[in-house]
């Protein structure tokens, strides 16, 4: 992410230390992760020490300090999905994209996470990609769904 773009985001929020989290959130959502250069820039402009920014950026799960893929895959491993075969869905996803939960593939196409209950148990087993829910999945369907993402 360019420093100019980071500056724009900072200016938009008024370059105040109190806007730190909002600024980080915006960088995160635009860039998918928080590069060190961006954090340094934010610290410099807001007059907030890097140690503090690091603490916040590692405290909240919404932030990532490593690159994330364009498509965020969440597999539900909650009880209902578990008994309805979530493990098979997860295995399929791992086979198809070749990464484990918490990882991102080399092309930055997918990031994979497991979650515990997405709140739509009747649709289990559930996989959510970029906020869109795919329910009642079989392994074959799972593979097809993944193929439709660029």
């Amino acid at each position: 992410m360019e420093n100019e773009r980071v500056d724009q985001i900072i200016d938009k929020h008024g370059a105040e230390p109190s806007g730190l989290i909002q600024i980080l959130l915006e960088i995160q959502s635009e860039n998918n992760w928080l590069p060190k250069s961006a954090l340094e820039r934010v610290g410099e402009r807001l007059g907030v020490p890097l140690t503090r920014i690091q603490h916040i950026a590692t405290f909240y799960k919404a932030f990532s300090l490593v690159p994330k893929g364009r498509n965020k895959v969440h597999i539900c491993m909650g009880t209902a999905c578990h008994v309805r075969g979530a493990q098979r869905v997860l295995d399929t996803v791992q086979d198809v994209i070749g990464i484990k939960p918490g990882e991102t593939d080399l092309d930055l196409k997918f990031s994979l996470e497991t979650v515990n209950c997405l709140g739509c148990c009747a649709l289990g087993p559930v996989m959510e990609i970029n906020g869109k829910t795919h329910g009642k999945l079989t392994p074959a369907e799972t593979a097809n769904v993944l193929k439709s993402y660029e």
Binding site: P49, L50, T51, R52, Q54, H55, T58, F59
Partner: peptide, 30 residues
């Protein structure tokens, strides 16, 4: 962490993460 920040004002070491994963972390450049 607090001594470096409050007394020395250098912020060379801080905490990262939370809960049982929380640990201290130096900023290498500083």
């Amino acid at each position: 962490v607090r001594y470096c920040a409050e007394v020395k004002k250098k912020h060379a070491v801080g905490f990262v993460d939370r809960g049982w994963r929380k640990e201290i972390c130096f900023v290498p450049e500083i």
